[in-house]
């Protein structure tokens, strides 16, 4: 149980997909202008990442080593297409909102990376927790970026006015350059935080 928790939790901060692994920076720039967009994208990635890790783990003994990457991509694309078809039929409004994000997920580096690094070498349950944890870490990072950008760039959070009407929104924050600046600072901050964690663990005499 502790091992599973460790697999899950490493995706949150220690190996956060965006801040530490620096994978999938593109969605972190493109769809974090509002909290709602960031959260939607994060949850979609979390679902596809967990599902794909399970599929890759289940089929890991059948897949030929030389064509594993095309097969992983096929698997990701299949999962995304299935989700699209199901949403189209049973939740068309949600499908309309998610439309462009869903098709983008196929090419996210983080999903392929977890399939290659973890799921292809581990059994189903740990693979699921790895995908779920990474997905949570991704969602968390997207939420942090989205909240700051929406607050500074538009004066609102989730569409509610927080900073009052006297506040002049800093437009740069909702444009891509603002996201670059912000992500840079956040990567720095998470690095400091991780260093602090490591130091604390060393001081306690734990093996890092």
């Amino acid at each position: 149980m502790f091992r599973l928790w460790k697999i899950f939790s490493k995706g949150l901060i220690m190996e956060n997909p965006i801040f530490v692994l620096a994978l999938s920076l593109c969605p972190a720039l493109a769809v974090t202008t509002t909290v709602v967009n960031a959260l939607t994208m994060g949850l979609s990635v979390m679902f596809v990442l967990s599902a794909n890790n399970v599929v890759v783990s289940l089929t890991r003994k059948l897949v030929n080593h030389k064509v594993r990457v095309p097969i992983y991509i096929t698997s990701i694309a299949t999962i995304v297409t299935l989700v699209q078809l199901l949403l189209q039929a049973y939740a068309p409004l949600l499908y309309k909102d998610l439309g462009i994000y869903l098709s983008l997920i196929v090419v996210f580096a983080i999903i392929l990376a977890r399939a290659e690094v973890f799921a292809s070498k581990n059994s189903v349950v740990p693979s699921f927790f790895d995908g779920f944890g990474m997905g949570c870490g991704f969602t968390l990072a997207m939420l942090i970026i989205g909240t700051i950008r929406e607050l500074v760039g538009n004066g609102t959070i989730l569409g509610y006015n927080i900073l009052g009407h006297a506040y002049q929104p800093a437009l740069i924050m909702i444009l891509p350059p603002g996201a670059f600046l912000l992500i840079g600072y956040l990567v720095g901050a998470s690095k400091l935080f991780n260093q602090y964690l490591e130091k604390r663990q060393k001081a306690r005499g734990e093996v890092v």
Partner: peptide, 29 residues
């Protein structure tokens, strides 16, 4: 053959889902 099988299986999954959901999707639209 390995890759072909993978594509075939995913194709079958997608086709099956499409077959099952298409009518509902058209109706919902």
């Amino acid at each position: 053959l390995n890759l072909t099988a993978a594509c075939l299986i995913s194709g079958l999954f997608i086709a099956g889902t499409y077959f099952l959901t298409h009518d509902t999707a058209v109706q919902k639209e």
